[in-house]
Design a protein around this nucleic acid. Structure first.
Lengths: 108, 108
DNA sequence: ATACGCTATATCGAGTGTCGATATGAGAGA
DNA sequence: TCTCTCATATCGACACTCGATATAGCGTAT
């Protein structure tokens, strides 16, 4: 019996998902989300960075300062083991919930 | 390029959807959502009634006082033409967005 | 009669998330 | 140096969800 709240966690899930293939920095995560969703989703910095800090506070990401492809200083985020488990759990929950909603909308 | 905000409108969409087969009162809508989603979603009064009032304010529902099946006074909500169009639009948007997210999660 | 329980609508405050705008800093290139 | 761009960060406004609580009416049992 899910609440509607879980849909608010979708951005967090997409961020974890964008990091599952390897570490990346903030704006890189944003770009990767846009790529993977074929431009369907756009994440501005006002949503992105609070989300990254949330996820790090919860122990699902760790960060370290490094250099971006263009020699800019950038903070690289990486999934932790707990983050991978969290992504797995959220992905399964999403599969279930999205299917249920889609069926509800299609039902006569 | 959708924002994450649209996912917050999912409850509104489910309410409109619950009314597409005919008018119903508040708690009836809540029960119908629970039925249609096979118990996957639970909507408490603290989320339900603000949502109903939102939708009425936007002209997507109209209400009239009546009597429930058990002779209780109840406010019946009904989709307007604009509400049907809105439901249609939101359902199409949902189909697209949910597919995109599901594909993103499944992608290697 | 009256006390209780159920249905039904409604509202409140706390917590949270998203967004646009803005700020800060640092490297690249002219 | 001056400017542009990348990159991180924060702020306040706004909206939504939620649990808890309030109000009211009807039915039923005591």
């Amino acid at each position: 019996m899910a609440k509607m709240e879980i849909l608010q966690g979708t951005l967090d899930m997409l961020i974890l998902n964008a990091l599952k293939l390897g570490p990346n920095h903030g704006l890189g995560v944003s770009r990767r989300i846009q790529q993977i969703t074929r431009g369907a989703f756009e994440v501005g910095p006002g949503s992105l960075f609070p989300a990254l800090h949330r996820l790090e506070d919860q122990g699902w990401l760790v960060s370290r300062w490094g250099e971006s492809e263009n020699n800019r200083r950038a903070k690289y985020y990486q999934l932790t083991a707990a983050g991978k488990r969290q992504l797995q759990a959220e992905a399964e929950s999403w599969e279930h919930i999205s299917l249920v909603i889609t069926r509800a909308l299609r039902a006569t």
